[in-house]
Amino acid sequence: MLFQVGGQGTRPTFFEMAAAQQLPASLRAALTYSLGVFAIRRPFLHKILDYDDEFFALLMMVLESHSLRTTDASFAESLYGLRRRAANISTKKSTSIAESSEKSHELGLRKNQKILSVVFLVVLPYFKSKLQSIYNREMEARLQASLWGNDEPRLDEAGFLLDQGETSAQSVGRSSANSSSMTRFRKKISALVAFFYPWIHATNEGLSFAYQLLYLLDATGFYSPGLQALGIQVCRATGQELMDSSSKISRIRSRELERLHGPMWLKAVQRVLLKCMYTSLDYAQTGLIAAVFFFKMMEWWYQSAEQKMSAPTVYPTPPPPPPPKVAKNGVPLPQDQSLCPLCCQKRANPSVLTVSGFVFCYSCIFKSVSQHKKCPVTLIPASLDHIRRLFHDL
């Protein structure tokens, strides 16, 4: 069986479906990062970050509802030129997958399918995110309990350990507060979530992987179990469908403008608000993608600038100092650099005098410095401590 990577007719490829599925998560990460950057200078934005699940769910609720209403596709699917169609699931064995997918293009989404699509696209991911956060808190509490015992961590607000007396006094106050029924109910819910969530998560991931593998092998027309539960297949939009969707949007908006009631000034205000909403929804896709790209560019720009500013200044290597000059009354240097200036013989046990840099035999320079207290070539004052043994005489 061949892998379906190039697409067959209007059937999307596996990579198109995977990209459309991963887009909301990438968009959320980019928006969270962007708000975090703005919150550094605008502290009131931290309130949005504290409720990032609710904020993102509300945003996706608006985008998904508008996209399904106008294009019969989710926000990410419409960006990739995909559409959702009601699938005709036949029980006859002679009906092939290709025939059922071709028939499914003729049917649009019903109203209940659009509502359930919003539930699967927004509501269920929101509850999954909240369950994940509850599970993480419960696991963290259990880890702290295993480290500190059955009591809560004995730390003050500054993070320091409390004395036993302070701990006992605070435990008495907490025991009275924890005796409420609401606290016990929350603990039971957290314990149930901690027990069942790993199984629910593993089942969901296993089913998703199985459906994606079957879709890649062209064994099913449904990319996920949620699409099969809704009876929906995803297909590529044709040019005619794209033109029909634009005319459909204009008809829907004209009907909404005709239904306005009230005095003339109220109708004018409502018309302006609706047009502003239409404009923002029309450019929501390109605007969000452009904003994400812009913020990532700004991140790269400022990060590179900070790295340049924080990087240590690298200075060029200074040139070596000029060799010391031979004194007029000093010992002349032999033409052969391998000879000792004092004995004019091949250097034995070569040693350097650090004040001048010239190399001599160890016995020769030791006797000369001991007697004259200076370099025999440059007449620079020296001592025996300035003699260094050379183990590689080049």
Rank of each mutant, 00 (worst) to 15 (best):
Y223W: 07
F366A: 08
A194L: 14
L107C: 07
P322F: 03
P323W: 01
L27E: 01
H105M: 14
M182F: 14
P153K: 06
S78D: 10
L109C: 01
G81A: 06
F196D: 12
T32A: 14
R41M: 04
G206Y: 06
G330M: 06
P225H: 01
S310D: 11
Q22I: 11
D72F: 04
R388E: 02
M182C: 13
C361K: 00
P198C: 04
A290Y: 09
N88P: 10
I387A: 00
E299F: 11
L161Q: 06
M17A: 15
D50I: 00
T167V: 12
N204M: 08
L58Q: 08
G206L: 07
K130F: 05
H201T: 08
A25D: 08
L63E: 04
R142K: 12
Q345R: 13
F366C: 04
T10Q: 14
H372W: 10
S245K: 07
L2G: 10
G159L: 01
I249M: 15
V5L: 14
V269I: 14
L58F: 14
L131R: 08
V234L: 01
K47H: 08
K128G: 12
K187C: 03
A98L: 06
K248V: 01
L31K: 00
D163A: 13
E64G: 05
T167C: 11
L339A: 04
C344I: 15
L147C: 02
G9R: 09
P381G: 02
Y126H: 10
G226K: 01
E99K: 09
F222Y: 15
L58C: 14
R255V: 05
G7Q: 03
R28W: 03
L273F: 05
S356N: 00
M17V: 12
R271L: 11
L143K: 13
R186Q: 14
A39T: 01
S310E: 10
C340I: 01
Q132W: 09
A25G: 11
S181P: 12
S180D: 06
V172C: 12
S104V: 03
I40R: 15
Q307T: 12
A382G: 01
R184M: 15
Q371Y: 07
M139E: 14
A20H: 02
L82Q: 09
E306G: 11
E16S: 06
A348Y: 05
P322A: 12
Y215P: 02
R184N: 14
P322K: 11
D244N: 07
R137Y: 08
R137G: 13
E166L: 06
P24I: 00
L49T: 07
P263H: 13
F195D: 12
A18G: 09
R154V: 00
R259E: 02
F56S: 05
P334I: 00
K275I: 08
F55A: 15
P334F: 04
W199C: 08
L68G: 02
E16R: 06
M309Y: 10
N349E: 15
I380W: 03
Y302P: 09
G81V: 03
L131P: 07
Y197R: 08
L147N: 04
W199G: 10
A87Q: 04
K325P: 05
K92S: 15
V292T: 09
M139W: 10
G6K: 05
T354Y: 02
P198W: 03
P341Y: 06
Q170N: 11
A210P: 01
L31Q: 02
V292Q: 02
L257N: 11
G206N: 12
S78N: 13
